[in-house]
Nucleic acid binder design. Structure first.
Ligand SMILES: NC(=O)c1ccc[n+]([C@@H]2O[C@H](COP(=O)([O-])OP(=O)(O)OC[C@H]3O[C@@H](n4cnc5c(N)ncnc54)[C@H](O)[C@@H]3O)[C@@H](O)[C@H]2O)c1
Ligand SMILES: NC(=O)c1ccc[n+]([C@@H]2O[C@H](COP(=O)([O-])OP(=O)(O)OC[C@H]3O[C@@H](n4cnc5c(N)ncnc54)[C@H](O)[C@@H]3O)[C@@H](O)[C@H]2O)c1
Lengths: 215, 215
DNA sequence: TTAAATTTGTGAAAAAGTTATCAAAAAGCG
DNA sequence: CGCTTTTTGATAACTTTTTCACAAATTTAA
């Protein structure tokens, strides 16, 4: 199986190749992509070979061909659909964001248990969580974004797994217990912030004008 | 230098140890933490040894002692302060979130260039970005959260680095160019979603009731 | 007190991931 | 055309990270 960081790097290369395409280029070299994405050229070639992407010796990679291949790999011509559970702070920020549409990702609907959220207008329909099973099966949904309070996330997850969800984007700090075939991508903002503080505390480059050692 | 994933795992152990403490336990074993966090017991012990945390053979780890040690490592008794740049969808979700306060992390102020954001009420002061340098130096800020549009993030970053910021939490899809001593933690929600779709497409566990192959 | 059971800590082994090396292909050029 | 330069692709070397294995310590219990 191709590992997550490999996939994510290739998605970054894709973005970079699109930029080159927009600028009118026809070919691109591993060192171009490496520089733009902040990895080594060898890494780029390794990543490409993992996906069976071949270039031309001395000729680099053909941009049009690359873009086609990326479209195949990531189903670029297919709309990707998901649902969101918990229309709170994070949930409504995600729903309002326009950037996913450009990448052909749609949050089809949101689900909550708070009647005020269900009545609200957010640009997408917001239903009661009781209706999620019906919606998943009627619309053939495989993934869900979890932005509910941490206390209820495991129960919500269990029900979604029962309804057929096999991929989660989890914004809660909980470590979800799921069957082996279910994938969970965790976004733990607290861990990201706290680890950042850890690094800056141990850094020798802190602002020398600071009298006290504040963080 | 201790790596990020090591730090983040230990933060998860901390959370789990706190739960055990709340439940009235006095000691905890590597296998308890392993199970809760979803890693191997050996990993727990290796992680601990990296931070110089020692347990007792056959006696496990003393919970009170562990919690004290975690407080030392992560400066649990010190308020950690940061600022936020870009009071948009994501920015205001973060500012509204109450969970960081409990962990003694405060977003002291936000900065924007849109006058309507600067006039708005968000619970924390929102200043014009022109004032960020003064604020950073007067308040001894080392870290910043970036939730501005991707087109302006590099320029914003350059200015913040000049003002002394050495740690970023970057919500934009841009790969930031920063000096070597500056740490950037990236949260790329598009990459997380797209890699999830990649996995579920290649999974054999997709809902069999789906006639068409929708994603 | 001795034996049995359990759990840590660590060094070795294995696995995973990244970087270096270099032959081969292709392009440019005199 | 033949020589030089560039760049890929494959493999080897290296590095990092995780897992394994087991001695040492400590507790429990007989
Ligand atoms: N907002 C942030 O910046 C932030 C940062 C870090 C972590 N998180 C995590 O993200 C999650 C969401 O945070 P938030 O700030 O958006 O919270 P929030 O309280 O604003 O939103 C949670 C939403 O979930 C709904 N909900 C509650 N129980 C539900 C259930 N059983 N089924 C369906 N919906 C339910 C609530 O009605 C609410 O609308 C939390 O777990 C939080 O820990 C958020
Ligand atoms: N909202 C999401 O769900 C989401 C998802 C993925 C990625 N992102 C990324 O996060 C970033 C923010 O997204 P958003 O949806 O919150 O955007 P947004 O447009 O809602 O907010 C951006 C804010 O930044 C301010 N701003 C613009 N230029 C600025 C400058 N030079 N200095 C200071 N402030 C400035 C704007 O006035 C606005 O308030 C974007 O880069 C976006 O690509 C957001």
């Amino acid at each position: 199986m191709i590992i997550k960081s490999n996939i994510q790097r290739v998605l970054r290369y894709q973005h970079c190749v699109s930029n080159f395409y927009e600028l009118g280029f026809d070919k691109i070299y591993s060192h171009n992509l490496a520089e733009a994405v902040g990895v080594s050229p060898e890494q780029v070639r390794k990543d490409f070979s993992e996906f069976g992407i071949r270039g031309n010796k001395r000729g680099g990679y053909d941009i049009h061909q690359l873009l086609d291949t990326f479209q195949d790999i990531f189903h670029g011509k297919v709309d990707k659909r998901t649902i969101l559970i918990g229309m709170g702070n994070i949930g409504s920020a995600l729903v309002k964001y326009r950037g996913f549409k450009k990448k052909r990702i749609s949050i089809l609907a949101a689900f909550d248990i708070d009647p005020s959220k269900i009545k609200g207008t957010y640009g997408i329909p917001v239903y009661h969580f009781d209706e999620v099973d019906k919606f998943i099966n009627e619309n053939c949904i495989h993934t869900a974004i979890l932005s509910v309070p941490v206390v209820s996330v495991q129960q919500v997850t269990d029900e979604l797994v029962k309804s057929g969800i096999i991929g989660f984007l989890n914004f809660t700090p909980a470590i979800l217990q799921v069957p082996a075939h279910v994938v969970v991508n965790n976004i733990d903002l607290y861990l990201e912030l706290e680890s950042l503080f850890y690094y800056i505390r141990t850094s020798e480059h802190r602002n020398i004008n600071c009298k006290e050692d504040k963080f």
